[in-house]
Each structure stands twice: as C-alpha cells, then as structure tokens.
Design a protein around this nucleic acid. Structure first.
Lengths: 147, 147
DNA sequence: TGTGAACCTTCCCATCATGGTAAGGTCAAG
DNA sequence: CTTGACCTTACCATGATGGGAAGGTTCACA
C-alpha cells in the first residue's frame, strides 16, 4: 500500500507519516523497487491510533509511551490511566488559564461602551493605568454587587 | 536606560524586546556610543502594554492593532471592543476544544480500572476498536443512566 | 593600571506539530 | 509517448520564546 492510501485510511497526512517515521514514532516501512514506501494494514491501524491520540491532545512523547503500552501485553492499565490523568490535569490547567483570560477580557469589554468615543477601559487596562488583576477583581465585585 | 532595566521594569525579557523591535512591533530605540540600546520611560510603558496584552492571550498581530489604537486619539472604543470580542470568541473556541478532549478522556479514564491487568478502555478507544466519539457518547449515556 | 563581574551586541539554533513548495523519479492509462 | 497522478528528498515557514556562543563595553575595586 502506498503512503497516500495509508494517509486516506488513517487520517494522518503523508507529510506527517514521513515525519513520524523520521522521529522514530513509527517504524520505517519496507520499500518497493521504485523506492516508494510500502505499508500494510498494521501500519494503518497504528497511525489511526496516533491520530486519535493527537486529537485528544496527547503530545508526541506521550503517544510514544502510549504506543509502547499498546504493544506491551504485560502492561498494567494503571500505567495507562496514570498517563491519561496527567494529561487531563494538563488540559485542566490550560482550560483554567484560558478561562481566566476570557473572564478578564469579558469584564473589560463589558465596561467598554463600544461607541464612537475613544474612552475605553480595555485600552486603559492594557496601558496599566489600572493593574489588570486589580481591575479584574474590582470589576467582578462591581458586577456582582451592582447589578 | 539599558535594555536590562527596561526588561526588569516592563516584565518583557531583553531577548523579546529585541525581537519585538526586529518585527517592528516597537520602534528601534536610540543607541549610545557603545552601540547599546537607549530607552526612555515611554518605552517601558509601551512594553508593559505589550506584556499585559500577551498575558491576556492576544497575538502579536492583534497587539500591533491594539498599539495603533492606543496611540490613536481619534479611535473609537467600538473598534477596541470588537477586536477584544473576536479574541474572546477565539478563547471560547479553544476552551471548548480542550474541554471536549478532557471530557472524553475523563470518561475513558473513569471506565479504566487502573490496576495491574492490561485490559484498558483508554487503549482500546485509541486503538479504534470503538470509534472514540461513539464511545464517548456511549460512555456519557452509560454513566448518566447507569449510576 | 589591571582585572573581573555584569552588562551589552549580533548570530545561529531549538522548540512543537504541521504545511508548503521545488525539483525530480515512477507508473499506469490513453 | 505523453499526461497526470502518484511518489521521493530537501529546504523553508509558522508563533513566541529561550539558549548559547563569541565578542565588545562599563564600572568598581584592588
């Protein structure tokens, strides 16, 4: 099977399949006389695994571990679960960070008239006329108390 | 003022200050006889603005616009607000994406015993023995119905 | 006057995962 | 024999940041 078909079947681009081979994430396949890579069903399966793990936000290094665990018949599910929960914790951390940004901005935007005049709490906040965090907390208080 | 002090005062590393100059985000400062960059208070203020905008997740190009608006006395707050709300929408999109990953993984992990045996729904899900999304939705149903 | 520490300068490389493009080889159908 | 669809390698780009090398400047202190 040529790389293009594997790409179609696995959902991983040919570009990335070559890249994963180069970094040793997947083994180099055999070559035909034409020097074309030659894949089998097992490779499609493995690359599908990689794609699904990527879709769930695992890093390449984590996927390397997951592939090793997948192939290891003597693995403990505890190890898989532990790796997964570490990743969940990382996702939670990122979500909290983004949510904090969003909330700060939403509060600034809420206080901004959004009209033709230049006066703008968003710009003022960024300019540091007010400390952004203090401003954020003041906002929260003003909003919860004043509305 | 040397770049190191500006870095300290603004919270932007000297490395990044030079980078922002190179990409035209901030104007090149004057130079002393030693060829050292020479900054004033205004530069510290501007870089503080940049840092706060970065902390809120704005991209460099968005910050370029924000700096222009900041300097424009005839700006409309509507323009600032519009830019901000576009960014908020982008943050929401990222948060939703990450939350979906987290929820899928949390459900898989929930179904995983995490013991010494190799059987593992997480690995099975990644291996595509079940479609991940279908599995996720089945999980949700199983969890809400079965507990 | 010398010297060492603490600055500064430019230049290049690395990250992470992915895409683009260029220049060229292979193969099957028409 | 050409055309088009495929494949190959090699290099460059992204975005924001850091690391480090090799070398120049400044200043305090012995």
């Amino acid at each position: 099977m040529q790389i293009g078909e594997v790409a179609r079947l696995s959902g991983v681009s040919a570009k990335m399949i070559r890249h994963y081979e180069e970094i040793g994430l997947v083994p180099p396949p055999g070559r035909r006389g034409s020097n074309y890579r030659d894949y089998g069903h097992h490779d499609v399966h493995r690359l599908g695994f990689v794609r699904r793990a990527r879709d769930l936000g695992f890093s390449i290094e984590q996927i390397r571990d997951l592939l090793r665990l997948w192939a290891d018949r003597r693995r403990s599910s505890a190890e898989v679960k532990q790796l997964t929960e570490a990743h969940i914790a990382e996702l939670d951390r990122k979500i909290r960070l983004l949510a904090e940004m969003r909330d700060t901005l939403a509060n600034l935007a809420h206080a901004c008239d959004g009209d033709d005049r230049p006066d703008c709490p968003i710009i003022d906040g960024l300019a540091g006329d007010l400390d952004t965090h203090a401003q954020y907390h003041n906002m929260v208080q003003a909003l919860s108390g004043g509305e």
